[in-house]
C-alpha cells in the first residue's frame, strides 16, 4: 500500500481472518471508517473485517484493543 497524504505516519491493520468471529466491534468503533466487514466468509462461516480504506487509518490501534478474538491488530508505522 502507499500513501500520498504527506503524513509522517501511516496506520496499518493486520487481520487474521481465521480467528475472527464476525462480532463487528472493530468496524463499529473504528473512529475513521478504515475497516469494513468483508462479504466473504472465513472457514468457520463468519464475515471478517477488511482493511478497505488504508488512507483513512490513523493507526490508533483501537480495533486491536477491542477485538475479543485477537484477530486484528492496528498500529502506526513511520513513513520513510
Amino acid at each position: 500500500m502507499s500513501t500520498s497524504t504527506g503524513r509522517k505516519f501511516i496506520g496499518l491493520v493486520v487481520i487474521n481472518s481465521e480467528r475472527c468471529k464476525g462480532c463487528e466491534i472493530c468496524v463499529s468503533f473504528c473512529p475513521t471508517g478504515a475497516i469494513v466487514m468483508s462479504r466473504d466468509f472465513n472457514s468457520k462461516g463468519y464475515h471478517y473485517p477488511e482493511f478497505k480504506h488504508p488512507e483513512k487509518c490513523t493507526g490508533c490501534g483501537l480495533c486491536g484493543l477491542y477485538c475479543p478474538d485477537f484477530a486484528i491488530y492496528g498500529y502506526r508505522e513511520k513513513v520513510e
Binding site: 480467528r19 477485538c67 485477537f70
Partner: peptide, 25 residues
C-alpha cells in the same frame, strides 16, 4: 499480544462479541 497467548489453542471458545477476550487484550 500474541506472545501471551497459547496460539495453538486459538480460536478460543468464547462466543462472537463476548467481552472476555477484549479484557484479556
Amino acid at each position: 499480544v500474541e506472545q501471551f497467548l497459547r496460539t495453538d489453542r486459538m480460536p478460543h471458545i468464547w462466543c462472537p462479541g463476548c467481552g472476555i477476550g477484549t479484557s484479556v487484550n
